[in-house]
């Protein structure tokens, strides 16, 4: 065992990359849940985004178009969920689980001819002076665009929820849909838009896996990232910046366990591989033990079916 082979600078830099897909998916789900909808289909939307983004990027040679396609694909798939739960008033938990299973199956079908191909590389931003700064340079300024985009998205969601009327209406709908309806807000329309936003974000997160993080297509490659994203929303008690914190924490443990494996730590690989999930469970238990605090932030109408009586 040789821990000195672990380079802290590289560790932090790769932690940011590892965290980006779940961060994207989680911030999307946060918006959905803030609107009072529980969409458990994140995993399915992510993997659909992963394959659609991958396929379009390979066919056109443009990773950017791939990401756009992934967002569109995730949003389209989420529309299925929106139709079931908002129009047909189906149970959200069951519909979400179905969406995950459907997404996993459909992605495998679409992806049959794409296994083993390399996607076009996504360029890293290389700002000449900044990225040459020792330590800070590689950590902060040596990444691809999506890493920064995810952070900007967190900031944008935070600002919109906190400072804008749109955010206020969204929170109101998630807090008490009957009251929002009585005041004349279009509960169903707002929720469908939120669900689509969540789908697009999950799609982007999936495409980040297949185009940058891995980068190739394999069946079931999201490997539970969607579930982690769902857990992170609760961990973050529905606060955008904490989503970032949660994603980095999870990403950090993931990267660290790879590094520990490489350094030959004398623990069976399986334990290391399960450690990020154990940490997630542990954090969730700690979070939900302080009942009052998480209840304070949980949208009161979360998961409840809205049926306009008039």
């Amino acid at each position: 065992m040789d821990l000195s082979t672990i380079n802290p600078v590289l560790l932090i830099a790769s932690l940011m990359v590892a965290a980006t897909p779940i961060m994207l998916a989680a911030i999307g789900e946060l918006v959905v849940e803030k609107a009072g909808v529980l969409n458990l289909g994140v995993e399915g939307m992510m993997i659909i985004g992963a394959i659609c983004g991958f396929a379009i990027a390979v066919e056109t040679g443009s990773p950017l178009l791939g990401f756009v396609a992934a967002a569109v694909a995730g949003a389209v798939l989420s529309l299925l969920f929106a139709f079931l739960t908002q129009i047909l008033l189906a149970n959200q938990v069951a519909s979400g689980l179905a969406l995950t299973l459907f997404g996993l199956g459909l992605s495998a079908l679409i992806g049959q001819s794409y296994a083993g191909i390399k996607p076009p590389p996504t360029p890293k931003i290389d700002i000449p002076l900044l990225s040459d700064i020792p330590i800070l340079g590689p950590i902060l300024f040596g990444h691809d665009l999506m890493v920064y985009f995810a952070i900007l998205l967190i900031a944008a969601v935070w600002a919109v929820l906190k400072y804008t009327r749109l955010g206020l209406i969204l929170r109101a709908v998630g807090e008490n849909h009957d009251a929002a309806h009585a005041l004349g807000y279009k509960v169903v329309r707002i929720r469908i838009l939120a669900i689509m936003f969540g789908g697009a974000c999950a799609g982007l997160g999936g495409a980040y896996l297949s185009l940058i993080r891995v980068p190739q297509w394999t069946e079931g490659m999201t490997a539970g990232a969607g579930w982690i994203a769902l857990a992170i929303v609760v961990f973050a008690s529905w606060k955008p910046w904490r989503v970032m914190l949660g994603a980095y924490l999870f990403g950090g443990v993931t990267v660290l366990q790879f590094n520990l494996q490489a350094a030959g730590v004398n623990i069976p690989v399986q334990y290391l591989a399960m450690s990020p999930y154990l940490v997630t469970i542990l954090v969730l238990v700690i979070m939900s033990s302080s009942k009052a605090r998480s209840a304070m932030n949980a949208p009161a109408a979360l998961g409840r079916i809205f049926h306009a009586t008039h």
């Binding site: 009327r165 206020l168 929170r171 807090e175 008490n176």
Partner: peptide, 24 residues
């Protein structure tokens, strides 16, 4: 003024009032 169902418990007084206005 409704009998019930029209306030948002987790929002502040000002936010609740703002939601009920056209051009707050």
């Amino acid at each position: 003024v409704f009998q019930h169902f029209s306030l948002f418990e987790a929002l502040s007084v000002a936010e609740n009032i703002s939601l009920g206005m056209e051009n707050p």
